[in-house]
Nucleic acid binder design. Structure first.
Length: 425
RNA sequence: GGAGAGAUGGCCGAGUGGUCGAAGGCGGCGGUUUGCUAAACCGUUAGGCGGGGUAAACUCGCCUCGAGGGUUCGAAUCCCUCUCUCUCCGCCA
């Protein structure tokens, strides 16, 4: 949610930010509504001040046993004006709120401009694709050949975009998650959290998924939302609070299932595990002061990268351009892992600084020791990493000519020392 | 599923029609005392919106005691609806 005060003070930069997102200017509309709203509010306050004053006088007069009749009539007459100003003011406030709730965060200044993913800027690469003396296969071919990845039975159970893993692949998935959690909690100062997977609308609003992106989410019959990412519960851990500045930064990590309806992704990545209705992810969330959030984003991205380094998976880091960034983000780095089977880099993590955009929606603040004022915190989130996609990356990068998969050294302790995943017999 | 209780400031917790944005405590902040720390004592301390003022200090008005509506000249306090939380019983991983 953007700050109406800042829009009022600087409508040009508000419109400029929208333009960078490829959207039409809105300041004229917003400010017109705002002016009408403030007109009603000030009228309301005038009437209320008079009512309060007169009511006190009535109390005083009655206490002295005097006649308060004329004053009482005057206050009674004010009621209609008060009611009208309240109704008009509230209607306009809601209109403004609804409008602002649907507008995306303003991009940070150093975010490259661009219409879509083509405008993203590669920042760095790590590692090099494995030298394979054979034509690399895609993960679904490998998995099915191993007899450990079954899309057909998954379709019978649940339909398209689901998978059943078995045996060593299932264990590999669990190992990856445990490895990631251990790294983030042990090395990077994150606190492991086991959050709810069903949340209320207010929670989904807080992170910016509602009201605009309800179509991407699954919902239960009694109106819980299934989390599309642990960002949702983890970020909302600080909602409606005034935090002690000394507690910051707060760093949370969680391994959770994620549920996405992928409503707008018909026809994309229809084969395999790349795009599923359900997958698991180890999420990173930081809550910081405004002064430290930029540095925190670098730190968080570094933590996600470290997972890939330790697994020996080649990747690149990309700065998303204005046209490719998510709704709540002011700056985002995507980490893309190399998939030999596709001969392409594919997104495996997305790390974003949301500034105070989510904090405003959640009413999450901290007490600034210098000014003693309650200020909105900054929130960041990143995948550290998407477990399903990491599993794919391990399979494709560590595949051998016979279709078996070498287990990266870092994971072997989590797999009881297993070195190679071979066909189940 | 059945029965009951409750929602007040950063936290705990008083407050059943007027001077209550709200006692008291905790916590925080400032100070006194102290060789230092602790303790004690004194003072201070809600958020939001809008106006004045130099973006500061300061100051004025309005709103907010879960949300919405009602009664009343006047509501934290009375009435209605909703939401949420908790306790007990039942069932259950």
């Amino acid at each position: 949610m953007l700050d109406i005060k800042r829009i009022r003070e600087n409508p040009e930069s508000f419109d400029a930010a929208l333009k960078r997102r490829g959207m039409a200017p809105q300041s004229v509309v917003v400010l017109a509504l705002d002016a009408r709203h403030r007109g009603w509010v000030s009228a309301l306050q005038r009437h209320q001040a008079r009512r309060n004053e007169a009511s006190k006088a009535i109390g005083a007069a009655k206490a002295r046993g005097e006649d308060a009749g004329p004053l009482m009539n005057e206050v009674a007459a004010l009621k209609d004006s008060i009611r009208e100003a309240e109704e008009e003011g509230r209607a306009l406030a809601k209109e403004i709120e609804d409008l602002l709730a649907g507008l995306p965060n303003a991009p940070a200044e150093d975010v490259p401009d661009g219409p879509d993913a083509a405008g993203n800027v590669e920042l760095r690469r790590w590692g090099s694709p494995p030298a394979l003396a054979f034509k690399p296969r895609q993960h679904f071919d490998l998995g099915e050949a191993l007899g450990l990845m079954d899309f057909e039975i998954a379709a019978k159970l649940s339909g398209a975009r689901f998978v059943v893993l078995k045996g060593a692949l299932s264990r590999l998935e669990r190992a990856l998650a445990a490895f990631m959690l251990d790294l983030h909690t042990g090395t990077f100062g994150y606190t492991e959290v086991s959050p709810p997977y069903l949340v209320r609308s207010e929670t989904a609003f807080g992170t910016g998924n509602l009201p605009k992106f309800a179509g991407d989410l699954f919902r239960t019959t009694d109106f819980f939302w299934l989390i599309p990412t642990a960002e949702m519960p983890l970020t909302n851990l600080v909602r409606e609070q005034i935090l002690d500045a000394a507690m910051l930064p707060l760093r949370f990590t969680a391994h959770t299932p994620c549920f996405r309806s992928e409503a707008g992704a018909a026809g994309k990545d229809t084969r395999g595990m790349i795009r599923q209705h359900q997958f698991t992810k180890v999420e990173l969330v930081s809550v910081t002061t405004p002064e430290t959030s930029d540095a925190e984003l670098e730190c968080m991205t570094g933590a996600a990268e470290e997972v890939l380094r330790r697994l020996g998976l080649p990747y690149r880091v990309v700065a998303l351009c204005t046209g490719d960034m998510g709704f709540a983000a002011r700056k985002t780095y995507d980490i893309e892992v190399w998939l030999p089977g596709q001969a392409a880099f594919r997104e495996i993590s997305s790390c974003s600084n949301c500034g105070d955009f989510q904090a405003r929606r959640m009413a999450a603040r901290y007490r600034d020791p210098a000014s003693k004022a309650a200020r909105f915190v900054h929130t960041l989130n990143g995948s550290g990493l998407a477990v399903g996609r990491t599993l794919i990356a391990v399979m494709e990068n560590y595949q051998q000519a016979d279709g078996s998969i070498v287990v990266p050294a870092a994971l072997r302790p989590y797999l009881g020392g297993l070195e190679v995943i071979a066909a189940a017999r």
